[in-house]
Design a protein around this nucleic acid. Structure first.
Lengths: 363, 363
DNA sequence: CTGTTAGCGCTTTCAA
DNA sequence: TTGAAAGCGCTAACAG
């Protein structure tokens, strides 16, 4: 007895029903070669009747493509990375490619992903965001013959779209200097350390900071340079110390907006008026920066992700001619957390009651 | 001439080199059947020498599994969804499964994904977050014989982990009532509409809001119920109108924290002191809520994603016994955006200069 | 234009 | 304990 196939129909079921070869079905499915209108009709009919749809898995395997693009990114839940991912999604979503996000949250993960993810059998291409790449890895990618594009990071041998963080750091610092500040601190994120894993964007900002200082003839003071984890609570604690020390800075430049918010909290804790008694400038211009009235350096986060994904698509369809190294603009956005420094400096101490919604009150 | 294979080695290359069958190589690779120590050694050696590693694509195809879990989620870049995704990642990342995020940003996408994603040849299981499911789709999933778990949404036939939004809405409103408020507005997100696509969480919050009002003997006033898009600018604009109308509310309950922030901005625009002249309560407790001093209903965002992923893993390895419908806790977090209402009400008008960093100033 | 056939690289009976 | 061989479902020569 010929049992009716209950299972998912295959291309052969369709072929049999339409009295054609499997190849013909494949042809009408993919428009890969001319098919007479008559047979096309028959095949279409069979497909409809069987409610057939080709197995993606088999298709990919046969094609030797995965139709997947891997994204390797650190801390994908941070606002700035989320925004870049949104840019990536905006171009990949309408494409035939799905993407898988590999979230790097430790050096081990980073190396694991760098070694295992960029393989032809896992994905057709990989976009690496916010992570710096060593030459060794570059040759590893080469060996695996897989296209790689960098976002928020650079390497001479890889296509990339990245901000000029040195210039950004310079511009931010220059803004403060132009306002008249001289005691300018820089609070960095700790991931700066290339031994750990992120891109050297924040180290570059430090370079820009020092460059601007130099140009203005202001001496770099190590006690004005600090690092801490890139979260609000850590930065708040650190900023409290910095602001309680003698000869406290009149302005602080933070490596990212999240850290800048921590600094604003610290100022609130200490009853320091922002911007009158303390100017704060951030970096990124994440969504919430506007709410907080934060002066910051705007990066084209969404746009950088979008362009990165576009470059990948071009690399994949062969239309990418050679290396493309694209700059991504960074612009100063002045809001209400910066102004000229106050003349005198008063001692501060932690306030008892903190009201983030209005002026600080002592109760 | 026997040319050295330059291409990626396959299992057969290894087998040949080790003088064994391909099956044996597979066995040592997967520990799927006993292999004598001697041959194991030889095989391992060959694998090492060839720097072989099995093709994921072929493996998946042969296994009939994709080793992929699909996540269907609306607006994955919104803080609350990002947080749930982080929970999902925390359990999927150490597992053998990769996950692909399908970002729903329109009703079309929603239907497209619901129809095409839940198929065995695309992924082994799907987690749907924040989207309500119709019976039709449930039977579609059934037909495709693919496990589905819901997060932040419920259906009697599907495993899920979800908050009790009716209770949450009730609790939020009750907090305001307990403080002495009677003119309590509710600002909803527009996605409420089930014809569009999101889960009916915010509609349930409305039900809870009305329930609490009823219980307190406060009449529901339609002019205190508004909807708008779930972003700050839209909510800010709407709240400005609401707060400028005669007999303005003394307290507003927002369907999510992002909208609550928009309301705080509107209050700032109008020179209304929060909480003295206006109490605001949000929903979600996203990271930035603490910075903003926002009173809110805390949802276990990370945790819900984590549990959802765990349930999926259990469903996949067969250890999930029947339907699991898990509640996820929602708790009131009181910060500084709510207090008892002021006795009298003054007229307001938009301030010229807005300083989010301190008290509002007229210059 | 269309059918036949040979893989894609792995897992898994089935025999030995 | 091991090897040979049959698929998994599709695409892409290669003939006709």
């Amino acid at each position: 007895m010929k049992r009716e196939v209950e299972a998912t129909p295959t291309i052969h079921d369709v072929a049999r029903r339409a009295n054609v070869g499997a190849a013909t079905v494949s042809r009408v499915l993919n428009n890969t070669a001319p098919v007479s209108e008559a047979t096309r009709q028959v095949v279409m009919k069979a497909i409809a009747e069987l409610n057939y749809s080709p197995s993606q898995a088999a298709r990919k395997f046969s094609l030797g493509k995965t139709l997947i693009i891997s994204i390797i990114i650190p801390f994908f839940t941070r606002p700035s990375f989320v925004e870049r991912l949104r840019g990536v999604d905006s171009v990949l979503s309408p494409s035939q490619y799905d993407f898988i996000v590999y979230n790097v949250d430790s050096p081990e993960k980073r190396d694991q992903f760098f070694n295992q993810v960029p393989r032809k059998d896992r994905s057709d291409g990989v976009i690496i965001i916010g992570l710096s790449i060593t030459d060794e890895y570059v040759s590893h990618f080469r060996r695996n013959d897989i296209p790689v594009v960098l976002v928020d990071s650079k390497h001479p041998a890889l296509s990339s779209v990245a901000e000029d963080s040195v210039q950004g750091g310079d511009d931010a610092t220059q803004h403060l200097i132009s306002l008249g500040h001289e005691r300018i601190a820089y609070i960095d994120d700790i991931l700066n350390d290339p031994l750990i894993h992120t891109s050297n964007a924040s180290r570059n900002r430090l370079i820009g900071y020092r460059r601007a200082l130099d140009r203005a003839g202001i001496k770099f003071r190590p006690e004005y340079h600090h690092s801490c984890y890139q979260d609000r609570p850590s930065t708040r604690a650190l900023a409290r110390e910095v602001l309680s020390a003698p000869n406290r800075p009149s302005a602080i430049f933070a490596a990212c907006d999240t850290q800048a918010l921590g600094i604003l909290e610290a100022a609130r804790d200490l009853g320091l008026q922002v911007p009158e008694e303390l100017s704060v400038i951030g970096y990124d211009d994440i969504e919430i920066a506007e709410y907080a009235g934060l002066t910051t350096m705007r990066q084209s986060l969404f746009e950088s992700g979008r362009r990165g994904a576009e470059l990948m698509l071009q690399a994949l369809d062969g239309s990418l001619s050679g290396l493309v190294i694209e700059p991504s603009p960074t612009t100063l956005v002045v809001r209400s957390s910066t102004c000229p420094p106050a003349k005198s400096q008063r001692r501060v101490s932690i306030q008892k009651v903190l009201n983030p919604l209005g002026a600080n009150r002592t109760n």
